[in-house]
């Protein structure tokens, strides 16, 4: 049950694109057609499935303070966490290369549809972001980390397919010239992000009073992104401000 919750949360509530803006570059560049969007999205899910658990193991047994204790008591004080970035990105780059070669060898059809996107993925922030958030969330076991990785990948897939479909349709609409292309895509993504915010109440039942709901939503994300928490707490301040104001009136 908790795994299911984590899965749904990483797809909808902590959506890579709409909540944390990760992988925006390829999201914007490759979303002109649904078919290419599906290809890249599938490749991202696949690479997330491989790299997140792998980086979880790296983090558990090499990087975190005291992780080297399996080598012997002398290594208990070693803290290699400053190497996180370089090791994670190296894992991702090699895995992407490896996945590309394996897929080319054993599934040429899949390679033909995914092939060109695989190198792009090495520099897709969603992948590195997934691993870094995984490290920050401090999962208990590798299953949780894997579920989180796949969930985030699926969330990214949904986002890019949705915007791809909208961009295919919007070609027939009369968009003001200055917003054509990039500008409109940003505004659309913003509107979609507002839509996705409504998933925030999904795991809490959503029938609390609005103010309580905000509080409920902060709790699960608190260890996740410090950045977002700051945002939420300021938003909360404004809510409290307006409340005190109405009381005074």
């Amino acid at each position: 049950m908790e795994l299911l919750q984590l899965f749904l949360k990483s797809i909808f509530i902590d959506n890579m694109v709409f909540a944390t803006f990760l992988g925006m570059c390829s999201y914007l560049a490759v979303s002109k057609k649904v078919s290419t969007a599906v290809g890249l999205g599938a490749a991202v899910i696949f690479v997330m499935l491989v790299t997140v658990p792998l980086n979880y193991l790296l983090d558990q047994y090499i990087l975190r303070p005291g992780a080297l204790v399996w080598l012997g008591e002398d290594y208990a004080d070693v803290d290699l966490s400053f190497l996180t970035f370089i090791l994670f990105i190296a894992t991702i780059a090699t895995m992407v290369q490896l996945v590309e070669m394996i897929v080319e060898k054993f599934a040429p059809a899949l390679y033909n549809s995914l092939g060109i996107f695989l190198p792009l993925i090495a520099v897709n922030c969603a992948i590195l972001g997934g691993s870094l958030f995984m490290q920050q969330k401090e999962f208990n076991n590798i299953t949780e980390a894997t579920v989180y990785g796949v969930g985030s990948g699926i969330g990214w897939f949904l986002a890019i397919v949705a915007i791809g479909a909208i961009r295919e349709k919007i070609r027939y609409s009369n968009v003001p010239p200055v917003f054509r292309g990039l500008g409109m895509t940003f505004i659309l993504t913003g509107l979609m992000a507002i839509g996705f915010m409504s998933f925030g109440g999904m795991l809490t039942g959503g029938d609390e009073a609005p103010k309580k709901e905000v509080v409920e939503n902060i709790a699960p994300t608190e260890p996740v992104e410090v950045n977002e928490v700051v945002i939420d707490s300021t938003a909360l301040e404004t809510v409290t401000d307006s409340l005190t104001q109405t009381v005074q009136e």
Binding site: F18, F179, G183, T185, I187, G190, A193
Partner: peptide, 10 residues
């Protein structure tokens, strides 16, 4: 909140 960053940039 996140969405307004996108709309501002747009």
């Amino acid at each position: 909140l996140a969405p307004m960053a996108l709309i501002t940039l747009g």
